[in-house]
C-alpha cells in the first residue's frame, strides 16, 4: 500500500510493533464475559439444571438452610432456591434485555427525529426529554404501572423500557446533529431516501459505537429497576419467580434469620450486574492511552 501511494518528502511512519499475544488479553473483561455466559446458559437451560420444581411449595420444608437436598435452602413458602435461581434468572434477564431493547428503539427513533428536525422542533423535543428526565424514574414507573394494571412480565418490560430511553436519545440526537450536514446524507435525501432508510443506512452505523455503552448500561438499570420494584411489592407478584420477587420475601426473612433467602439471589443479581458493568466499561472509548506527564 505505502509504496504505491508514497508522497515525495513524506515523513516515514514508524513501524508499528506487532501486538504481543500476552497483551491481547490484558484489560479485556474475560472473567466477566465467561461468568455472564455461564449464568445466561444456566438460566436458558434451567430445565437441565433444576433439581426440584421451582414453583412447588414444599410446606414441610419451609425455611430450610442449605443442605444436600436443597442446595441453596428453601424460602418461607417452601420453594427450592437453587431451582428458583435458574428459573427466575431467565425472566430477570429477559426483562432486562427486553426493556433495554424497547428503550433503544424509542431513543434511536426519537433522537434521530430530533436531530434531523428544524431547530425549533429540536429544541422543543429536547425540552420534553428533559422534563421527562426530571420526574423521578421510580415514580414514573409506579404511575405507568398503575395505568396498565396488574403487572406481568411484558407490561413491566414495557413500563421500564418506556421510562428509560431519555438519556440515550440525547446522545443519539447530539451525534445526529453532527452528522446531518454531511454530503452523503444530503445525497440520500435528494435521491428520495426516507427517514427510516437514512437512519438505518447512514446514521445508525455512525452513532452505534457511542450508544453501545449506554445500551449495555441500560440493560443493567432495567434489571435493577425490575428487582427494586418487585422487592417493594409493586412489581411482579410473588408467584412470578424473578430474582427481584424472590427478594421480596427478604424482609420477613430478616426476622427469622434465614440469611440464605437474602444472600443467594442477591449474589447472583450482583454478579450479573457487575459483569454487565465491566463489559459496558470495556465498550467505552479508551481515553487514557497516553503516558502521564505528571
Amino acid at each position: 500500500m505505502r509504496g504505491a501511494f508514497e508522497l515525495a518528502g513524506i515523513r516515514p511512519l514508524p513501524e508499528e510493533a506487532p501486538e504481543k499475544a500476552e497483551n491481547r488479553y490484558r484489560g479485556r473483561p474475560i472473567f466477566s464475559a465467561v461468568l455472564l455466559t455461564l449464568i445466561v446458559l444456566g438460566c436458558a437451560g434451567c430445565r437441565l439444571i433444576m433439581t426440584k420444581d421451582p414453583t412447588y411449595m414444599d410446606l414441610s420444608h419451609y425455611n430450610t438452610a442449605p443442605n444436600g437436598e436443597f442446595l441453596f435452602g428453601t424460602d418461607a413458602m417452601g420453594r427450592d432456591i437453587f431451582s428458583m435461581i435458574w428459573y427466575g434468572g431467565r425472566l430477570s434477564l429477559f426483562i432486562g434485555t427486553a426493556s433495554a431493547a424497547i428503550s433503544t428503539v424509542i431513543a434511536v427513533v426519537f433522537g434521530a427525529a430530533s436531530g434531523l428536525a428544524p431547530a425549533w422542533l429540536d429544541a422543543l423535543l429536547m425540552r420534553v426529554t428533559e422534563i421527562l428526565l426530571s420526574v423521578p424514574g421510580l415514580l414514573l414507573i409506579v404511575l405507568l404501572q398503575a395505568i396498565l394494571g396488574e403487572a406481568d412480565v411484558f407490561r413491566i418490560s414495557l413500563v421500564i423500557g418506556v421510562t428509560g430511553w431519555m438519556s440515550i436519545a440525547k446522545v443519539v440526537r447530539t451525534e445526529v446533529r453532527q452528522l446531518r450536514g454531511h454530503e452523503y446524507i444530503l445525497a440520500a435525501k435528494c435521491m428520495g431516501g426516507g427517514f427510516f432508510y437514512i437512519l438505518r443506512r447512514h446514521l445508525a452505523p455512525n452513532f452505534v459505537s457511542s450508544v453501545m455503552f449506554m445500551v449495555v448500561m441500560n440493560v443493567r438499570s432495567a434489571i435493577v429497576a425490575e428487582s427494586t420494584l418487585s422487592f417493594m411489592g409493586i412489581g411482579l407478584p410473588l408467584e412470578v419467580i424473578t430474582w427481584g420477587s424472590m427478594l421480596s420475601l427478604a424482609e420477613k426473612a430478616l426476622l427469622t434469620g434465614a440469611w440464605w433467602t437474602i444472600l443467594i439471589p442477591g449474589l447472583f443479581l450482583a454478579a450479573v450486574l457487575m459483569c454487565i458493568t465491566n463489559l459496558g466499561n470495556y465498550l467505552r472509548k479508551n481515553i487514557n492511552r497516553k503516558e502521564s506527564n505528571l
Partner: peptide
C-alpha cells in the same frame, strides 16, 4: 464498581442482616 452496581435495596438488606440482626449494633 462492585459497590456501585449492587442494587441499593439489597445492600440495605445485607447490612441490616449483619449489623442489626446478627451483631445487634445498630437499629434496623
Amino acid at each position: 464498581t462492585l459497590t456501585s452496581c449492587i442494587p441499593e435495596f439489597w445492600l440495605s438488606l445485607v447490612l441490616i442482616l449483619v449489623f442489626s440482626v446478627t451483631l445487634h449494633w445498630l437499629p434496623s
